[in-house]
Nucleic acid binder design. Sequence first.
DNA 1: TTGTATGCGTTATCAC
DNA 2: GTGATAACGCATACAA
Lengths: 346, 346
Amino acid sequence: MGITVVDIAKKADVSVATVSRVLNDQQKVGAERKQRVLAVMEELNFQPNRWARGMRKGSAGEKTGQIAMLMVNRPDTDLHQAYAMQNMHGAQQEIAEAGRNFLFCIWHESDGDTIPDILLNGEIDGLLVKGQSATETGKKWLSRYPRVRINPSDPSKVDCDCVMVDYERGSRDCVAYLAARGHRRIAFVDLQAFDSKLLGYRKEVKELGLDADEGLIQVRDFPVPLKSNSDLDWAIENLWSLPKPPTAILSHDYLCSAIYKSLANRGLKVPDNVSVVGYDNVLDCCRTLDPPLTSVDMGAFDIGKAAAKQLFERIGDPQGRSRKLYIQGRLVERDSVRDLSAKETT
Amino acid sequence: MGITVVDIAKKADVSVATVSRVLNDQQKVGAERKQRVLAVMEELNFQPNRWARGMRKGSAGEKTGQIAMLMVNRPDTDLHQAYAMQNMHGAQQEIAEAGRNFLFCIWHESDGDTIPDILLNGEIDGLLVKGQSATETGKKWLSRYPRVRINPSDPSKVDCDCVMVDYERGSRDCVAYLAARGHRRIAFVDLQAFDSKLLGYRKEVKELGLDADEGLIQVRDFPVPLKSNSDLDWAIENLWSLPKPPTAILSHDYLCSAIYKSLANRGLKVPDNVSVVGYDNVLDCCRTLDPPLTSVDMGAFDIGKAAAKQLFERIGDPQGRSRKLYIQGRLVERDSVRDLSAKETT
DNA sequence: TTGTATGCGTTATCAC
DNA sequence: GTGATAACGCATACAA
């Protein structure tokens, strides 16, 4: 049915070997012949057959034209599902543009020690990895492939390429944004896990000389997904027990509806009495909260896309030094922040 | 690197042809020899090489061992993204269990008339389709493959297999559930699109002899995603302008936080003054709303899984009559419904 | 029923 | 540089 190298070879009056060489762009081919072959390929709209290519390489092949995204455990909250979907979208787009196939696999490690088929039979050229295998065998299998990890929980320990949200930068941007609007007491409310976010907060607070009150930092290992909107009452409770409560809160989209609720319970209005800034800008609640939430968009789509791009480079240069890519966020302004400095001038 | 049919043939002392026949389970093979071959395959943990298999068929092959999920346009709200993710999870699991690969492709038709590569080169055995192509060429390409559509917007017009939420049934279940708790005036609030949901509501209201007031039906084509929590004020407004307002509202998870909000604005408490039942049970808000929302789980995971299963059957029997599969929902009780009948007895 | 031989589209290994 | 040709692993037409 399809056009093959033989067709190209005939029409361009060269051998199939030459066509193959042009295709892989590796060995030397005479400039003139190369042009001829390329022209015919174009004319006949030639698409090399993925199956025939893949057959040549046994394990961990390099020419299958297939990239897999491997997700260790399925995301289980709106946030994670939406975020994952956007990662996938970005990756898929980049991969499709490169004329490759995008495979998707969810790996439930808890279900015994089964290794996903995808890793077993050399069906892919490389991997995009979300999450991390907990077992040694699992890790060993992953390491057989060129791969890029997406948002690893501890980048410093990772020995392969990875692409990440720049939490530290995003956090600093938020603090700076609030400071520019006259806020000096900014609370930080989040899960314990986000070290670099907290780090960014601390650095910027220090750099700008804002109030560095440890009481403003409310971090805990509370349940995700949240069980109810009351799950953050403790944070607001603690904050408003302070001699001087904050004028702004930096947190995460996911927590903000609970935060709004807790604030409302205390008769506090956003943004009149408190300003709130979220993080990620993935969830609809950013728009539907009342008032709509100002939030840093951490580019889930961009991350997926960048990861795929980086993977292609890695496949092209398997031995090169591993890279850590940080994706910049972008603050999306809505109506949850009040400009205190403006007030003073009036 | 891998075990091949030749290895199997040698060890089982048969020809490769026989091994191949056993593999495809089609032609007659002597029972004894078949057992022997199967045993050796098991022993050597034989995995047929996908590339070699796929190479045999040109277009719309039958043996690539790859199934693709094609999503026409990316889902753009929490709900759709989360729902899609769960569809994918179900499909992926079924496909992996069948030893096949799961490809994923998002098709932005608006970007010109480009047909996804996946459809072009016979790289897959079949398709799971979410959404629908708007163009004739698009539809033609899709129709070349065995395929199953997931939640088509108009099932009656669909000429291929499809797997769907049983909206009508789910809706009836909700009404029945509320009726059993003494509610006779049940409002229906939703997007215009969901005909069968509304149909189910009407049928059950009629069957149970509840108040069939058209004023209780508040359906519109409002913007999705919602811009704010006030986007449903009109519905509540209309409902409470009725001579006799409803005692319960049947809607959708996605709309319920807005509904809660509108009710609160009128000083109405859930479930004390009004009961609310959602739909889908996909979003976290079911849990985090205050009070947590009773909702029909429409089995996004199950749908994905069932669709994949149905696709395998279709691949095995390409000419058979197309089937429409309805997946049953399951009501998840939380705290947003009040039992009026209980009240009467106290 | 079973085995032999050949082809699928590509790349790699030789010679030239 | 270039061209012929032998693999790759599987399925199948044909012969037995």
